[in-house]
Design a protein around this nucleic acid. Sequence first.
DNA 1: CTTGAGCCTGTAGTGGCTACAGACCCTATC
DNA 2: GATAGGGTCTGTAGCCACTACAGGCTCAAG
Lengths: 153, 153
Amino acid sequence: MKVAEGLSIGSLSQQIGVNIETIRYYEKIGVMPRPGRSAGGYRVYGPEHVKRLHFIRRGRELGFSLDELRGLLRLVDGHSYTCAEVHALTVEHLEDIRQKIADLKSLKRVMSNMAASCTRDQIPECPVIDALYKMPPVRPPGSPAPARRAPSG
Amino acid sequence: MKVAEGLSIGSLSQQIGVNIETIRYYEKIGVMPRPGRSAGGYRVYGPEHVKRLHFIRRGRELGFSLDELRGLLRLVDGHSYTCAEVHALTVEHLEDIRQKIADLKSLKRVMSNMAASCTRDQIPECPVIDALYKMPPVRPPGSPAPARRAPSG
DNA sequence: CTTGAGCCTGTAGTGGCTACAGACCCTATC
DNA sequence: GATAGGGTCTGTAGCCACTACAGGCTCAAG
C-alpha cells in the first residue's frame, strides 16, 4: 500500500528488513521520530525515515545498544557532532567487542577441554559433569554470567 | 547466621558468589530445589545445595542458559545421564560459542575500519556516520541484530 | 528488651524486542 | 453499494536472567 508521497509501515519494514512491531517500538522509545499519518491514522514514512531506520539497523548489527544509537543520533540530529566525538564512541564500543571476544575464547578453551575429556561412552559418568561440579570459579564472585547466550535469532 | 546443620541464604550467597535474590529466583523457576526452613521461615541449606548452586554458577559462567542447565541437572538428578548425552549438549553449546566469536570478529573488523577511517578532527563530519548511513546490510533481512550486547556485568 | 542486621514475600523494572487481541482502514471484486 | 481480505491501529503481556525495591518478620547479641 503506497500512500501518496510516502511509505506504509509494512513497506518500510520490508525495505529495511526490520519488523513492523520493532519499528513501532523504536518510535515509542524515541529513536525513530513520529511519522505523519494518513486520514485513517496510518503511519506515513518519508525518505528521512528510511535513512534513519537503516542507520539504526546497521548500528544494531554492529552491536550498538539502542541507547548508544540514541546518543549518536542526537549528535547527528543536532548536526553538532564532530568526528572526534564519534570516534570516541566507536573506540569505546570496539573495546567492548574485543573484551567479549576474549571472554568467549577463554570459554571456548574450557568447553573444548571438557568435550575432549569426554569418552562419549554409554556409561553414567561424565567428566563434564564432574568439571562443572568441581571446577573453581575463574572470575571473581559477583559476576556470575560473563557470557549471555544469543536470545533466539 | 548459622542454623544448626545448615547455611542461611546469605552464607550460601557469599560462599558461592551468587546474589541472594538470584538464589531465590533459581528456586522459583525450579533450578534450585526448595530448601528446608527454620522455625521462623528462613531458608536452610545443606551441602547438596552448595554443590548444586556451584554447578549452576559454573554453567552460567560457561554460557549455558538456565534452560540448558535445567536439562543437564535433570540428567544428573535422575542419575540417568550417559557421557554421550552430556557430550552432545557440550558440543552443541561449543558450536554456539564458535559462531558467536566469528560474528564478533567480523563486527570488530568493520568497526576497526570505521574507526581507522576517522580523522578525529573537530569538524562536523565523520566517515563513521556516513558508513552507518550508507553501508549495505551484511546479513539477510529479518535478522537485524546478530550481536546482542552484554546486559551489564 | 531493645537494636539492628538479616531474611521473608511479592511486585516491578531492565533491554530489545515479539506476540497477541480486538478494533479499524483500505482496496478490489462482485 | 456490499463484502472480503489484507494491512494497520492501540495496548498489553511475554521472553531471559536477573535486580531492586517495599513493608514486614526473625534472629542473635548486648
